[in-house]
């Protein structure tokens, strides 16, 4: 056999093996699971001690040495706390009456969700980190599963993309592959919020030309996709444009959370006894696609 023939056979055989492995993995997910339970977990183990040391040094510096502006910050926080207490007092009364009305009208009680904290140990990592993601320090050993919603105190952050035993990857709201079914907080106009990449505005799709939506309106998760609970703040409307050639408004929004500055996030999971996420049908084909990915 001549040398060029040998090389051609080796290339074809290599390509065949590669594509066979790729399609087998797409069907079964075994190789993805193997890399998550080894590579993702090993990187978590490598990163955690350094992050712990960095946190401790930063905490020591800010708590005991760098105390500039502490009194002013304390006063501002006291004011904010008293304002929040006052608002909370009014809201409690309204929430109690809303529950009463729901019972009277025969509404089902809202789904219960529990929150647990996770520490961010990295953002997008490695040469294959093509999507906008976060790496967090909890995995399947702590009950984390794919597609669980992740939020911060400011609003929705994204959802779990893949899990290892002790670390997981979160797909951020700002990634172009992320879509969330939302509605306006005041006008309740429904739409689909999609990311366009880090540093770019979010795009609110499928808002009818005659729908009511205001600039600065907060967008809440509508709960229709079956992934996110209803009512979580997701984004704020920044720009609304009417088009002569489209059936829909062009609406831009900004996330409520600074993704780059996140240090801790909250994992949301349904309380035991609640139906699975899969029980709720996806709101649309796009949302179903996002859930499948």
């Amino acid at each position: 056999m001549t040398k060029p023939k040998k090389i051609a056979i080796i290339i074809v055989a290599g390509l065949f093996v590669y594509l066979s492995l790729y399609t087998w993995n797409l069907r079964t997910g075994h190789l993805d699971a193997l890399s998550s339970y080894t590579g993702l977990d090993i990187s978590g183990v490598v990163l955690r001690p350094g992050i712990w040391v960095s946190d401790k040094v930063s905490e020591f510096w800010h708590r005991y040495i760098y105390l500039v502006g502490l009194k002013q910050q304390n006063d501002a926080l006291r004011d904010e706390a008293s304002n929040l207490r006052r608002t909370n007092m009014l809201m409690q009364a309204r929430a109690a009456s809303a529950s009463r009305f729901e019972r009277l009208l025969g509404f089902e009680p809202p789904k219960h969700w529990t929150f647990s904290g996770m520490r961010v140990i990295g953002h997008r990592m490695g040469p294959a980190g093509a999507l906008a993601t976060l790496t967090v320090d909890k995995g399947t050993a702590s009950g984390v599963a794919a597609d669980m919603p992740v939020a911060s105190l400011g609003g929705v952050v994204g959802r779990i993309l893949r899990t290892g035993a002790g670390a997981s990857t979160v797909l951020l709201l700002t990634d172009p592959n992320s879509s969330i079914a939302v509605m306006g907080a005041q006008n309740r106009s429904p739409g689909m919020l999609a990311g366009q990449g880090y540093g770019k505005p979010l795009m609110l799709r499928y808002i009818n030309q005659n729908a009511v939506i205001d600039p600065d309106e907060i967008l809440l998760s509508s709960g229709l996709s079956g992934i996110y609970p209803k009512g979580l703040p997701v984004a704020r409307v920044t720009k609304i444009q009417r088009s002569d050639i489209s059936l829909f408004l062009t609406v831009q929004a900004e996330p409520l959370v600074d993704m780059a500055g996140l240090e801790e996030v909250l994992l949301l999971r349904r309380a035991p006894g609640q139906p699975d996420q899969a029980d709720t049908p996806p709101a649309s084909t796009e949302d179903a696609g996002a859930a499948a990915q």
């Binding site: 993805d32 890399s35 080894t38 990187s43 294959a128 990857t169």
Partner: peptide, 9 residues
């Protein structure tokens, strides 16, 4: 495995 595990593809 490290590159695949930390990646998102």
């Amino acid at each position: 495995l490290l590159a695949e595990g930390t990646g998102s593809l």
